[in-house]
Each structure stands twice: as C-alpha cells, then as structure tokens.
Amino acid sequence: MKKLAFSAAILALTAGAAFADGHGRTIRMGTEGAYPPYNFINDDGEVDGFERVLGDELCARAGLTCEWVTNDWDSIIPNLTSGNYDTIIAGMSITDERDEVIDFTQDYIPPTPSIYVALSDDVDLATGVIAAQANTIQSGYIAESGATLLEYATPDETVAAVRNGEADAVFADIDFLTDITDEDDELMVVGDPVPLGGGVGMGLRETDGELREMFNAAITSMKEDGTLNALLVEWFGDDVPTYE
C-alpha cells in the first residue's frame, strides 16, 4: 500500500498533462488480482500493483473515473465481451489469436521474455512436465513444444506444482518468476529465455473504439513525458525494457 501511495504521489506531479475527453465517465477496469507485480490484492483487500497505478493514471489523463473489478484469468475475456467490465488490464500479452476476439490498445509494457524455473538445473525442458497458467501464451508455447503441459487456473498454482513435484518446471513471464526466485533459494532459472508476444496492452471490446483511442492517447502521453518508463523501473527494476 505504501508503494501504491508513493507511485500516486509521483504521478500527481504530471497532473498538468491530463486531458478531459472522458468527461468523468466511469470505466470498470477488469484485472486478475493474482499476478504480482503486475496486479495483486494487498493487505487492505485492494487491487494493487503496477497496473493499478498505471490504470488510475490513464483514467485521470483521459478524464475517466476508474472502478476496479477482479476476475479469474480463465474467464477474463468472456466476461469483458459480455459487459461485466470495460477493460482488461491484467498483464495480458497482445497476440493475433486474442486480437480476433477483442481489441487492444498499444502496449504499455514492451515485449519481455518468458523463463523456466525449476528446483534443479538438470531438468529436461524439451520432454519434461512443464506447468503454465491456462489460456496464456506460455501454455500455448509449451503445448506445441513437445513437453508435457500441466495447466493451472492461477499463477501461484503453477509454482506450487514445481515445489510439490507435480511438474519439472514452471514457464511464465520473467517479471513474475524472478520475484519468486529472489525470495526462494530452492527455485532457480533454467534454460534460455523465450521471447513471446507483442508486449502487454489493455483489452477492450471491439465495439469500444472511442474508448480504446482515449486510452491510447493517455498511454502515448505517459511514454512521451517519461512517467511510464519511471513506473516500469519502479515496479520491475532497472533491467526492465523501457520506451525510447
């Protein structure tokens, strides 16, 4: 919660860059709330993380009011298209397959690699049992790799599968897994990083073109004034890819 407040204080310095296209319209921001540091539920029961800070700032710049909604990952796209919320801002990589169902804004996180994490450096990544969260670009990659895929509903379950011996390794976003390996000496990065996806963007219904352009303009303004890069470094560290 302290980090959320700190980020909000930094972004408040850029309030002069805001624009009021949204005229106070309320937008329901759909997220998973289970994928730190992208998004998670803090000790106060509130949505927190990089995407909470980013989303609030994007709404402020667009003159919109944000309301945050959490939804399980496996139904996050269907519940967007059915109208349960207006955006997905949940660490979702932009892919051609998803773009056939929903629209995306421009990316707000540049493409980053995915990595394997295991309990031993001699695991067989080519033909072993690999855990990944269901309906992700990582699970799709493993399904076509020749390895045995074990899918789980939540990212925490994929890591637990390695710890309890159900899987040889877990395959997920580098930013999610390195936070875990930093705190658990038994888990280690194995194999080579794998570049996947076209960066992370906000998902919107295909009929919401005007809203997409409002968020695109807000993302562009954050890229141009440097505040997006500052947030990326704050939440993901100095080695995170940033925008030129």
Rank of each mutant, 00 (worst) to 15 (best):
K2Y: 13
K3G: 12
I10S: 13
L11N: 14
A12L: 13
L13E: 12
A15N: 11
G16H: 06
A17F: 10
R25A: 14
R25S: 05
I27S: 02
I27M: 05
I27V: 06
M29T: 05
G30D: 02
G30H: 00
G33C: 07
P37E: 05
F40W: 14
I41P: 04
D43L: 11
D44S: 11
G45V: 08
E46V: 09
D48Y: 10
F50K: 03
R52T: 06
L54I: 02
G55P: 02
D56M: 06
E57K: 02
L58G: 03
C59V: 04
A60C: 07
R61F: 02
R61W: 03
G63L: 00
C66A: 15
C66S: 15
W68E: 13
W68H: 15
V69R: 15
V69P: 05
T70G: 12
T70Y: 03
N71K: 12
D72C: 13
S75T: 14
I76D: 08
P78N: 09
I88R: 05
I89G: 06
I89D: 12
G91W: 00
M92I: 09
E97I: 03
I102S: 04
D103T: 15
F104N: 00
T105A: 01
T105D: 03
Q106R: 13
Q106C: 07
S114A: 14
I115E: 04
I115V: 11
V117W: 14
L119V: 11
L119D: 08
V123E: 01
V123F: 00
D124I: 04
D124E: 11
D124C: 04
L125W: 03
L125I: 10
A126N: 09
T127Q: 07
G128R: 01
G128D: 01
I130S: 08
A131E: 01
T136I: 11
S139Q: 01
S139V: 03
S139I: 06
S139H: 01
G140P: 03
G140M: 04
Y141Q: 13
I142E: 03
A143S: 10
G146D: 04
A147I: 00
E151F: 04
Y152N: 10
T154R: 14
D156H: 13
E157C: 05
T158M: 12
V159S: 05
A160C: 10
A161H: 04
A161L: 00
V162S: 05
R163C: 14
A167Q: 00
A167K: 00
D168M: 06
V170C: 10
D173E: 09
F176W: 10
F176S: 05
F176Y: 11
L177I: 04
L177Q: 07
T181N: 07
D185P: 14
E186F: 08
V190E: 06
G191C: 03
P195K: 04
L196V: 06
V200D: 02
V200A: 01
G203D: 01
G203L: 04
L204M: 09
E206C: 12
E210L: 10
L211P: 04
N216M: 06
N216G: 10
A217D: 15
G226S: 02
T227E: 05
L228I: 06
L231C: 09
L231F: 00
E234V: 09
E234I: 11
F236H: 07
G237W: 13
